[in-house]
Design a binder for these strands. Structure first.
Lengths: 204, 204
DNA sequence: GTCTATATTGTGATAGAC
DNA sequence: GTCTATCACAATATAGAC
């Protein structure tokens, strides 16, 4: 019964290192990660890391860009779609992100932490990836609730979706709920968030 | 016009170091912080840091415990209060935390990041500080909406309050809104969150 | 208490044998 | 391609003069 993926298995050496880097970097962040941790996790010799990827920094670039794509890739296209309603956009984003984050729960804290430590580095990438202001979603929100800044609803949507994954270590400690139960809860939220978001839109 | 507090001023050396440590640690996290950064920020000699605090680790303990207290200190007493309603609890927590976080916007990402890197270390502290399950708030939520796990509403409340501060670097990059405007938005949320939370509670 | 100089350790990276 | 051994430098910490 080998539940956890064993990356010391049949992958190529290069792929073993990359997969180990994904795990260690996303779990501990760039600064707290030592190349020796990655080598050990991959079950390879430390020198091979530099042989394949030249440096810790270069390997990190690959991982962070992958994860950033996963976190931000979907949002731009959905929000700028002129043909869908607010409700459809919210449901689409909610279902897509919760599924993605159940499979990759460490991503939000990882990506947001690295952006904090190096905002300039990601400025260009982010601005091209996500056109929120002046998006169709933004205009639809402004039309629906002209009395409230549309940014509030952006915060609300992302907060409802992403926060449970960021706060998970804390919530797990506080409540002691097991991981399987947490997954059930997250799946429940896919549908609930749509309902809650509508309620917030209509709240007076 | 000296807007930013100058910690090289009239504080005691010990306090200068501690204040510099607060700033650097919360902004960059433990691993990415060098003791030299702290010494420079404090305007003191590097050796003095070890003279007063023995080690980077010991200095960090002081700072993280302070910040954890700031983030978690209020929540337990409010949630376990048998005499207040759901609405009063939400308003109380919302106003208190948003004020606190406007003054200390880096705290959530800092604290949650360090918990992630060292969950065992904070396990005891957190469990004693925050009794969420079986709190009055928890029971009130279960009575009000027996069809939905109360944890969902805990997630929702904390997400609405805390996420904007965690996502701020990202949102700033995406929207380009200036910091002053962000503060205005956060203050608006104090009242809005109460309304939104009620709407979510009543949503069918 | 504060400084300069230095010891000590940790960590990324490479040389060179196989 | 992979390994062992080692280098080079960065970062924490301390010794000892003032």
């Amino acid at each position: 019964m080998a539940k956890k993926k064993d990356i010391t298995g049949d992958l190529s050496t290069e792929e073993k290192i990359k997969e180990a880097a994904r795990q260690v970097f996303t779990k501990k962040g760039y600064a707290a990660t030592r190349t020796r941790d990655i080598a050990e996790e991959a079950g390879i010799n430390l020198a091979l890391l530099n042989y394949y990827f030249r440096s810790k920094e270069k390997l990190f670039e690959i991982v962070i860009m992958e994860k950033m794509q996963l976190l931000l890739g979907k949002i731009g296209p959905v929000l700028t779609d002129e043909k869908t309603t607010i409700e459809e956009k919210v449901e689409d984003i909610s279902e897509h992100y919760i599924s993605t984050l159940i499979a990759n729960p460490d991503i939000p804290l990882f990506v947001l932490g690295e952006i904090r430590n190096n905002p300039e580095k990601f400025a260009n990438l982010i601005m091209t990836k996500t056109k929120i202001v002046n998006s169709a979603f933004f205009k639809q929100l402004a039309a629906r609730r002209p009395d409230i800044d549309p940014l509030h609803f952006i915060f609300n949507m992302l907060g409802l979706i992403i926060f449970p994954f960021i706060g998970k270590p804390l919530i797990q400690l506080i409540t002691g709920i097991p991981s399987e139960r947490a997954v059930v809860l997250m799946n429940e939220r896919k549908k609930l968030i749509k309902t809650w978001f509508q309620a917030m839109l209509d709240a007076k």
